[in-house]
Design a protein around this nucleic acid. Structure first.
Lengths: 190, 190
DNA sequence: CCACCTTCCGAACGATCGTTAGCCTCCCGA
DNA sequence: TCGGGAGGCTAACGATCGTTCGGAAGGTGG
């Protein structure tokens, strides 16, 4: 892929995140590259191609981040690492993450199906951590692991709305992890 | 407001939630009412009016739900009630809630500003619960209440993506509350 | 030096967009 | 009984949409 084409994809990620897919015109993208709108078709076949590419880039980034989480060792540490990994992708590739979380639904046809499968797989990998934690007794044995994973994933998926780069992302992930593990109830009332 | 106008607002909420604001045309709305698109302008002045109305309806619903939460009594119970209230709005008015959470950002000008103020006020009311809980010692005194509120609000705000009506919404809210309060860690490893 | 490939331009395409206009019909209250 | 508002129609508006096309510049490899 040429350098120019990569520039176009980056501009698409930024504008789709900022104004939404349907709120971004081919003219907007051309203007971002300082070019006439017809010229973009030297690089793409359609606007939908760009959405597909950015969405896939997001899926790759999140899966790659999870790949770096060890699949052995204390589950509690792996959950912490998974949350760190997810939030790091959000903070370092905010535009791509935003498209991955919010704009993917404007994909159509088999691309939409393929994306949804990847997204479900990602969430399943997350969910597996909590299930394993319960089964191994590292999390409470009466844990509703589906609800637990949903809570953690909600925090992760919502992060694109407030997380900004450079503000102690790892520490924030650790604060979430600590809350999820130990709760907020006072010692006195336990 | 006439019955027909209310129908239009309902159709707008449904279509904006389903296809997005920019993905919904005036023609789509007219078709939903079984009418020519020009006829809609007997009821509205512009498409943006409909987005504004649905967004405001959402803000009203969420604030009204929080109003029913008592402002005295055990903080833990009030947090449970607030989560129940929020999820109940999501499950009973999913379309409106979706616009409130996701589509509001296509508002423009002072309407956008006014909405954002309402949204921040809502989140502040939520946040206050956790702060009070810490101050009164009902939650742990070393609690990072900002992060705690963020975690709870993330779960609440993300709910529109998966919550569907009629499946024990209150019980789900209670499971979230229990997890947030007591955490997931095993008794053995505590 | 020539052939080719990439990249862009300028102009135009048909389609669709949100909105306006003039006119008609029906119903309800005075 | 009559006036008027509510609600709908058809037709059209200018704007903007995504996309196509023929051609031209510029650099690169043979």
């Amino acid at each position: 892929m040429s350098a120019r084409r990569a520039e176009l994809t980056r501009a698409a990620a930024r504008l789709f995140a900022e104004k939404g897919y349907h709120g971004t015109s081919i003219g907007d993208l051309a203007e971002a590259l300082g070019v006439q709108k017809g010229s973009l078709y030297a690089h793409i076949e359609s606007k939908a191609d760009l959405l597909w590419e950015v969405a896939r880039e997001g899926a790759d980034a999140f899966h790659a981040a999870l790949d770096a989480v060890p699949d052995e060792g204390p589950v509690v540490e792996r959950i912490r690492a998974a949350l760190r990994a997810h939030l790091r992708v959000v903070s370092e590739q905010l535009d791509v993450a935003t498209v991955f979380v919010r704009e993917w639904r404007y994909l159509e046809g088999e691309r939409r199906d393929a994306f949804l499968a990847e997204r479900r797989r990602y969430e399943e990998r997350f969910r597996a951590l909590f299930r394993e934690g319960r089964e191994l007794g590292e999390l409470r044995t009466d844990l509703d692991d589906g609800t637990a994973a949903l809570l953690a994933l909600s925090a992760a998926n919502w992060a694109y709305t407030w997380l900004r780069a450079g503000s102690g992302t790892d520490e924030l992930a650790d604060r979430f992890t600590a809350l999820l593990l130990d709760g907020m109830r006072g010692y006195a009332s336990r």
